[in-house]
Design a protein around this nucleic acid. Structure first.
Lengths: 214, 214
DNA sequence: AAGTGGTCTAGACCACTTG
DNA sequence: AAGTGGTCTAGACCACTTG
């Protein structure tokens, strides 16, 4: 204000621009700080390979191994009747039981990803998928053990601004961009087994996809 | 201001929040308007298949066919010496000639994507790749005709906020999220042939990737 | 206690559009 | 001309931190 002879509000607007560009963070009472360039986590597309599951690594842990991060997650498990969207996408009846695994994934202790996974209850009842820790290779390994051979995954990616809930869960600054990914897992008969809605801090992740030319 | 008995600035801040969430747009002198939910353009991963090129469709046109959009693009072609990053990624010498195709892609007349494509000049000299319109199947078809068989593509995706330049080029509201994709095309010997830096209006696109399970 | 950031009021002026 | 949005000044108060 003194240096440029402008009012408080003008400085606030200026510094708010820098905040929204992700360059600085303000802490009330403490000051404005240049933001540390957040290290990029890479989700190589190899993370969904069967060889990784066979080696006992779930999709998230494969990422961790790649980037040198210590990944961890807390899961809340619950059963709910399928809403219309879920029913359509899982091709089950509206109201049928759905197992929901609601996870917060942390990297070196910091929350970096939200993941809400939905499966028809008929596939999960009595399996380790209903436990917080589903064991080596994750839920995909358990599905295959139960005879549901996976064939392919589809990921749909969009970019948008974080909602208020995401801002608080991922400790983002308001107005931060996120990557929203919806992954569907299909078995060899083309039946969807799982839908996973993920939200990632946009600037902390780089997604890597490998695509064949023919 | 009258309804809630608050000051002008307070209303401005409130409405600015809605703007950043992508819900409304302000036009000076005209008013605030609820933003039309922008239709989603889908980039199916099939867009890089050889069958599409053989059918005469480039990657962008395949998108268009899928979503019912009329896609168009304006390209500026230029030759520059390779900067360090480009040289490393294309595995050529710093300063070697690079062909740059700088494109703005429009959907139904509205700019929706920026794409800057870089290829070693040695691959493009005397080919239609150096023309604004490279012909049916796009530059990938021309590369294969010249004997450079494509094997795979790698796409790296991040989410971030639009820069000031991107805001004006894509007619975005300030603070809008974008998807930044860097695609590298490799031939059968594993040599990179092209690097394409794309910037997409985050909320207008949904990227679709297909991943095999094994 | 003094110095930060965050947000607010009241009033002003300019650019743009015509509800 | 009157009504919009955008931005600014000057001053105020509260929450939080300790430069």
């Amino acid at each position: 204000m003194a240096r440029y002879k402008v009012s408080r509000q003008t400085v606030q607007n200026a510094v708010d621009l820098l905040r929204r560009e992700g360059l600085v963070t303000g802490r009330q009472g403490a000051g404005w700080f240049v933001r540390e360039k957040p290290a990029v986590l890479r989700l190589a597309s190899s993370r969904l390979r069967r060889s990784e599951r066979d080696a006992g690594r779930g999709a998230s842990l494969t990422d961790a191994a790649q980037g040198g991060w210590t990944l961890d997650s807390k899961a809340t498990i619950r059963v709910e009747p399928a809403c219309e969207r879920t029913a359509t996408e899982l091709r089950i009846e509206t109201g049928a039981e759905v197992l929901i695994r609601d996870r917060v994934i942390t990297a070196d202790g910091h929350p970096v990803q939200l993941a809400v996974s939905r499966l028809p209850r008929t596939l999960t009842e009595g399996t380790a998928i209903e436990r917080e820790n589903p064991g080596p290779g994750g839920i995909y390994a358990r599905l295959e053990e139960a005879g549901h051979q996976l064939e392919r995954f589809e990921e749909r990616v969009t970019g948008r601004l974080a909602t208020a809930d995401e801002v608080s869960a991922l400790r983002l600054d308001p107005g931060s961009p996120v990557l929203a990914i919806t992954r569907t897992a299909y078995d060899t008969s083309g039946t969807p087994l799982e839908i996973n809605d993920m939200v990632l801090a946009g600037e902390r992740y780089e997604l890597i996809y490998d695509l064949p030319a023919d």
